[in-house]
Amino acid sequence: MAQEVLLEVKDLHVHFPTADGLVKAVDGLNFKVLRGETFGIVGESGSGKSVTNLTALGLIKRETAQISGEILFKGQDLLKLNSEELRKVRGKELAMIFQDPFACLHPFYRVGDQLVEAILCHEKMPKKQAAERATDLLASVGIPHPKERFRDYPHQYSGGMRQRAMIAMALVHNPDLLIADEPTTALDVTVQAQIIELIEKVKTEFNIGVILITHDLGVIADVAQRVLVMYAGRGAEMGTIDEVFKSPLHPYTWGLLESIPRVDSKGTRLVPIEGSPPSLINKPAGCAFHPRCPHRFEKCDKEIPAMQDRGGGHPEACYLSIEDKKRIWAEREARRTKAAS
């Protein structure tokens, strides 16, 4: 797999100074996204998924945050660009869609006009031509009667259609990387699959990279090639879908997998992860997950474990020996299957 690396995040830190203290939203994160792949990011709310991607787009105000590390996009460090240079990348080569399509379109402007605006801010052309292109895009993301729908206001669209319109807007300049931040969370279950399917179709058609952030591990298992599990602003485990879902190595990943219905067998017992997400201001010393981890030992609260391959075949951040990991996961699996039958 010698694919082009589109995005490479290196030792990213995003800290927000607040009245209560320094919020360490992202705290030493590393990952790569390749062209042509769907890269999943999972993790509880507040683990820093959105902040990471908003930082890449330059949508985290630099005055309000302390940002360090590198975000290389097609070889260029986005963190070194000034705001005008970033603006030229944003929406052109690097596009993002968000969680709540109900709130993401301006209620006072026609959907078509909002697309036209997105076209014209990066490319000079007659308005009429831009409108034609916008209409074509609406059609290509599966909006029926695009000519009429062009003139509608967002509130005349259903939730699924709005997300389609958002996708169309993200595609106006054929970006290289599309970031979808929980694109289906706010939508009806019936529509969710269609939107995911559309994102997949777009990915193959345009041969772009996709970062898919979602709570739905089932979706990740279906469409992503690789996945990053995040916890408290750091990576816990990263690998291909098979690696992470079939032989997970991090106790947090185990917890996540046990808290959702299993893809293969029905009726397994669901166990939520005990405890609550850590404070990002006073993070637990050592591994941030250790207070909730049933397998912790002396070393865990001493030093932050690095993300590295400890012999399991893919990078993870847990001090347990590879033998222990394999044994414990097998035991947990067995217990779970037994409890279900």
Partner: peptide
Amino acid sequence: GEDYIRTARAKGLREKSVTRHALRS
């Protein structure tokens, strides 16, 4: 702080246009 202002920035609008969007509301 609205999501549609974030969208306006995300699609690469100049700050002038973003402000126009905000003023409209």
